[in-house]
């Protein structure tokens, strides 16, 4: 794939690879809708040049399912808790939650709130996303 020097990762993912699950809410690092993982760290794809992630493992929301199609525990928990509202920020919320649980498998609700604070939800579904994180970490039954 030919990637221009100034091309953002969000642009490459959405418009060259067709991975439209990664959303552009602001395109300037304010909202987190474009969050993806690079080597298990959550980053804003709108503010990352594609060349910066060369040779790094980039995972988008489309890449979370297991090989047999099983949803990632965060995705399953978000469904169970009806975490998304309009859903436009959801992919970013999912990716931040996945990154959090990789680094801290049993976060407190306060820790989860801090870890997710780079993801804006204009619908205000924060309580439901936090419930989803707690469920995915096995702390909510």
């Amino acid at each position: 794939m030919d990637v221009a020097p100034q091309e953002t990762l969000a642009h490459t993912l959405r418009y060259k690879l067709g991975l439209t699950g990664t959303k552009l809410g602001c395109n300037r690092g304010e909202c987190g809708a474009c969050t993806v993982l690079a080597d298990d760290v959550n980053i804003y794809a709108c503010s990352t040049l594609t060349h910066e992630v060369k040779n790094r493992a980039v995972v988008t929301v489309e890449g979370l399912r297991a090989a047999d199609g099983t949803l990632h525990p965060v995705q399953a928990a978000f469904i169970e808790e009806l975490s998304p509202a309009c859903g436009f920020c959801t992919a970013g919320q999912v990716m931040s939650a996945v990154a959090l649980l990789k680094a801290n498998p049993r976060p407190t609700r306060e820790e989860a709130r801090l870890a997710m604070s780079g993801n804006v939800c204009r619908c205000g579904a924060y309580d439901h996303y936090l419930n989803g994180v707690m469920r995915a970490s096995g702390q909510l039954s």
Binding site: L19, E62, I79, T90, A91
Partner: peptide
């Protein structure tokens, strides 16, 4: 009664498409 709306899975997997996602 609670239920799982049919579109919610698409929202957590990225399959849900919004206007800009169509080509």
């Amino acid at each position: 009664k609670d239920f799982t709306p049919p579109d919610v899975e698409g929202k957590v997997t990225g399959a849900a498409r919004y206007a800009e996602d169509f080509k």
